[in-house]
């Protein structure tokens, strides 16, 4: 229980997000109105995805320096969880966009960039599925992982800022920019981000532990 304290922190933060996110006051803005509360749930998905993909890339580099199964499994499972968060981020974004921008797919640079980044990561799993040899699969996918991460950063962080994106922080919709400074929302938003990241790590570690158990079972079968 002692070493699982961060799981409890995650649960507490998520419960806090839910209660404070719906009950605390938010800035009154046109067009987005009450839907601004979606920020507490939609944006942490992306933060979660970026953290998961970063960890995945770190283990991909570690694998290339020291090719162990552990590094490979960690890299894959964090990428898996990251993709899960990304898919949730893009679908929640589409629902939100439908009501504030007028259509689910607006061709917004950040939206397109995020979609391309997700496709790049989907190709990572296609690559893994298509190589039979385990060692080759791990090495190739580790190299690809690093490239995927290097492609994601400009797609999500740089290109949308160079063009006019409707996402806040990239020019465009002035109504959205107001909450950038709102301290009431930060009180909920940052705990939400930490809570969701910890939940993502929890899910990833569960997947890693299951993979490890599977491997051990295979080893035992080999002995028998």
């Amino acid at each position: 229980m002692v070493k699982n304290w961060w799981k409890i922190v995650s649960i507490l933060l998520l419960v806090y997000t839910l209660i404070a996110g719906f009950l605390m006051s938010v800035p009154r803005l046109n067009i987005i109105n009450e839907s601004i509360r979606a920020l507490y749930f939609h944006v942490p998905m992306w933060f979660g995805m970026i953290v998961m993909f970063s960890v995945s890339t770190i283990y991909a580099i570690k694998y290339l320096r020291n090719p162990t199964t552990k590094n490979d499994v960690l890299s894959v499972e964090f990428a898996n969880t990251g993709l899960f968060f990304g898919l949730l981020g893009i679908t929640t974004g589409m629902i939100w966009a439908n009501y504030t921008w007028g259509s689910p797919w607006h061709g917004d640079p950040k939206q397109n960039g995020a979609a391309i980044a997700l496709l790049v990561y989907l190709a990572y799993f296609v690559l893994r599925g298509s190589v039979e040899n385990q060692e080759q699969r791990s090495r190739l996918s580790a190299v690809y992982n690093i490239f995927a991460f290097a492609a994601m950063i400009p797609l999500i962080f740089i290109i949308p800022r160079m063009t006019s994106s409707m996402h806040p922080g990239s020019g465009g919709n002035p109504g959205f920019n107001m909450y950038d400074l709102d301290s009431r929302m930060r009180m909920v938003f940052y705990p939400a981000v930490i809570g969701w990241i910890l939940l993502g790590v929890w899910i990833a570690t569960l997947r890693i532990r299951i993979r490890k158990a599977e491997e051990q079972i295979l080893e035992l079968e080999d002995y028998a």
Binding site: L14, V15, L18, I19, F22, L23
Partner: peptide, 10 residues
């Protein structure tokens, strides 16, 4: 009501 439902799901 909304908070209760989402809380239950969470």
């Amino acid at each position: 009501v909304v908070v209760a439902i989402l809380g239950l799901i969470l």
